[in-house]
């Protein structure tokens, strides 16, 4: 599929690389984002990379729409390169019980044990494909095919903050209380979005990767208290 330009109103253009969840597409999105940033165009307010597209929010009275369109098509085949800015994280999660009320159902539906579900999630490198939906909310992927489940028919009115959830090929962690239709497997004591760090309030950035480690409820409470007391810096969660 050739990249194509889509109008998101008169104030945004979306360069679409494909319509699938695909690490290759996402790498091209990131390369284009970096190449576009290097052009230093005036009149752009936001550049939003997703799994498979790059959206530029701009003011057409400041930046000519045709000029931006040409720049986007030009940068669409920017060479892929490993961004120097990506970080590897190690994130503790307590699974099941009140922290992950859907773990049992996910295990039953997929025909695996709860332990197998947990071991699988802790055994793969999850890539941060995009941050969106809510401040600091990471879309993570990709899950092995046997864990792909459709979203719940009736979304929960309030998913607890810091819940680890899965749906389809994706996993995510909710930084805020929110309605949500994903399957809740566990909860992390790590703070994913912190305004005290104004330079980079979101812990994760697109392109980062993370490993999940399973912790006990007691450890969860101990770490959560330390996080609340400001005793743990975000850099603590970088993988060694």
């Amino acid at each position: 599929m050739m990249p194509c330009l889509l109008a998101l109103g008169d104030g945004a253009l979306t360069l679409e690389f494909g319509d699938r969840i695909d690490a290759g597409l996402n790498a091209q999105v990131m390369a284009t984002r970096d190449a576009l940033a290097a052009l230093h165009l005036i009149g752009i307010s936001d550049v939003v990379p997703t799994w498979r597209s790059l959206t530029v929010h701009f003011d057409p009275l400041q930046l000519d729409r045709e000029q931006l369109a040409a720049c986007l098509m030009q940068t669409a085949d920017a060479p892929l390169q490993e961004s120097a800015l990506t970080t590897r994280w190690q994130i503790p999660v307590v699974f099941g019980g009140e922290f992950g009320p859907d773990l049992g159902a996910v295990a039953r539906t997929t025909g695996h044990s709860e332990d197998a579900v947990v071991a699988t999630l802790c055994g793969i490198d999850l890539r941060v494909f995009l941050i969106g939906f809510l401040p600091g909310f990471p879309y993570l992927g990709e899950l092995p095919e046997w864990l792909h489940l459709p979203r719940q028919k009736t979304p929960r009115a309030a998913v607890p903050a810091n819940s680890l959830a899965i749906a389809g090929a994706q996993a995510a962690i909710y930084p805020w209380v929110s309605p949500g239709g994903w399957h809740l497997l566990g909860r992390t004591p790590v703070r994913l979005f912190d305004l005290a760090d104004a330079a980079s309030p979101a812990l994760f950035a697109p392109g980062d990767s993370l490993r999940i480690t399973s912790i006990s409820a007691a450890e969860y409470h101990r770490i959560a208290a330390a996080v609340a007391a400001g005793e743990i810096a975000p850099s603590h969660w970088r993988a060694p």
Partner: peptide, 28 residues
């Protein structure tokens, strides 16, 4: 597969009823 939205975008979920997004809308 989620992509960016903007205030003014009109999205239509499976029930066929349109939702017009405003200033506090999610980013994707």
């Amino acid at each position: 597969v989620s992509d960016a939205v903007a205030p003014g975008a009109i999205q239509v979920p499976g029930d066929g009823r349109p939702i017009v997004l405003l200033a506090d809308c999610q980013t994707v």
